[in-house]
Design a protein around this nucleic acid. Structure first.
Lengths: 205, 205
DNA sequence: TGAAATAGAATGAACGATCATTCATTCTTC
DNA sequence: GAAGAATGAATGATCGTTCATTCTATTTCA
C-alpha cells in the first residue's frame, strides 16, 4: 500500500464519520430542537461515544454550521437542475413535505425553521444563513429571467427579482405552516399555490 | 375597605405581576430563544427574584403557553377590527416588522418563529398553536367573504378560504425572511407583495 | 512468518457550569 | 402580630466538553 493510498483511505473514513455524525445530528435536531438535543443523544444515534464526536467537530455549533452548509449545497444543486419544463408550483409544494415523506437529503421543514430561529440568536449562524439565502435567491432569479430557449421562464429582470423574493417567502411560509398545522389540507394548499403563482410567472405583464 | 375591594385589589396586583413576568419573558425569549433564556434572566428583566415567578406561574412552559394565548387574543382582535377600507398588503407587511420597530403588543417575528419550531417538539404548545391558527384563518376567511357593504372584500367562500390560507403562509414566510435577512430590501418586499396579492383579492374571477 | 511496537481510533467516567425549581427565611402591609 | 409577598441560597439534574485509558489495526524487525 502506497502512502497516498493510506492517506486517502484515512480521509475517506474521516469523511464517512463526519457524515455519520451529521446525519445523526440532523435527526436529533429535527426531533428535539438544537438546544434540547444533547451531544449524548447525537452520539447514541450515531452509535458512537460522545467523546468521539469531538475528534471530528470542534463543538456542537460547528455541527450546526456544517449542516447549514450542506443544505446550501443541496439547494444550489436543485436550482442548477431547474429547466423550462419544470412544474414550479409542484416543486415548491414538494419542498414543504415533512421529514418522513421525503426520500432525498433536502432540508426538512422542522430543521429549516429551527435554523431560522437560531439565526437571530447566534451571529455565526445568522451570517451563514444570510449568505446562503442571498446566493439562492440570486441564482433562482437568474433562472427565472433566462429565456425559454435557455431553459428559463423569460421574466424581465425586475419581475424575476420580485418573483424570486416572493417565492422564497412562500416556501418559508409553507414550511412554517407544515410545522404549525401538520394536518392542514395539503390538496387545498397545492391548488391555492397553483392559482396564485400563475400570474407571477407569466412573462407578459 | 370592604372585603370585595380587598379581594379585587389583590387580583389586580396579581394580574399586574403576571403581566410583568410575561413582558419580561417575551423580551428574553425574543432575544435568546426559549431554551437559552433562563428563569434567572427573566426574573432579572422583570426585576424580581426567580422564586417569585413561581408564585404566579407553575413552570417555564406555563409562561410560554400564556404568551401564546395572549398573542392569539391580540391577533383575533386585529382581525375583528378589519374593515373594507383597510390596505391589506400594507397591514400584512406591517405584521412582519421587527420587534424594535413595532409599538403595539403584537407578535414579533422572532417569537413567532421560535414558537413554530417549538410547536413540533412540545405537544402542548403544538396543540395551542394549531388551534389558534385554525381560529384565525377561519375568522379571516369569513371577513374576506363578507360583502363590501358589511365591511368585507366579497370573495366567494372557496376563494376566501384559499386566499386566507395563502395569506397565512405569506405572513409566516415574511416573518421568517425578516429573521433570516434582517437587511432585506423591505421596499422590494412591499412592492412584490402588493403585486402578488392583487389578483388574489379581486372578487371577480 | 510471527511477535513486539506504534499510532490512531474510540471509549466513557469525570468536571465545571448552568439550569429549573424549591423552600426556609425575611420583609411589608394592614 | 398575622398573612401574604418576596427573597435567594440550596438542590438535583443535565449539559457540553475533556482526557486518561483502552482497543484495534498496521508497521517493524527478528
Amino acid at each position: 500500500m502506497t502512502q497516498e493510498e493510506r492517506v486517502s483511505r484515512a480521509e475517506v473514513r474521516t469523511q464517512a464519520q463526519r457524515e455519520r455524525i451529521l446525519a445523526a445530528a440532523e435527526a436529533c435536531f429535527t426531533e428535539r430542537g438544537f438546544h434540547a438535543a444533547s451531544m449524548a443523544h447525537i452520539a447514541e444515534t450515531a452509535e458512537m461515544s460522545p467523546g468521539l464526536i469531538y475528534r471530528y467537530f470542534d463543538s456542537k455549533s460547528a455541527i450546526i454550521l456544517a449542516i447549514i452548509e450542506r443544505q446550501l449545497e443541496l439547494a444550489r444543486a436543485e436550482i442548477a437542475n431547474l429547466h423550462d419544463s419544470v412544474d414550479l408550483p409542484h416543486g415548491i409544494w414538494e419542498t414543504t413535505l415533512p421529514r418522513e415523506a421525503r426520500s432525498d437529503g433536502r432540508m426538512n421543514p422542522a430543521l429549516y425553521v429551527e435554523m431560522s430561529a437560531e439565526a437571530c440568536h447566534d451571529p455565526e449562524i445568522g451570517a451563514a444563513v444570510r449568505e446562503a439565502d442571498l446566493i439562492l435567491r440570486t441564482e433562482f432569479a437568474r433562472w427565472l429571467g433566462r429565456s425559454r430557449e435557455q431553459g428559463g421562464l423569460g421574466l424581465t429582470p425586475a419581475k424575476a427579482r420580485a418573483a424570486a423574493l416572493m417565492i422564497q417567502c412562500l416556501v418559508d411560509g409553507l414550511r412554517v405552516r407544515q410545522l404549525r398545522e401538520p394536518d392542514v389540507d395539503r390538496a387545498l394548499v397545492k391548488r391555492a399555490l397553483e392559482e396564485f403563482l400563475a400570474p407571477m410567472l407569466r412573462p407578459r405583464d
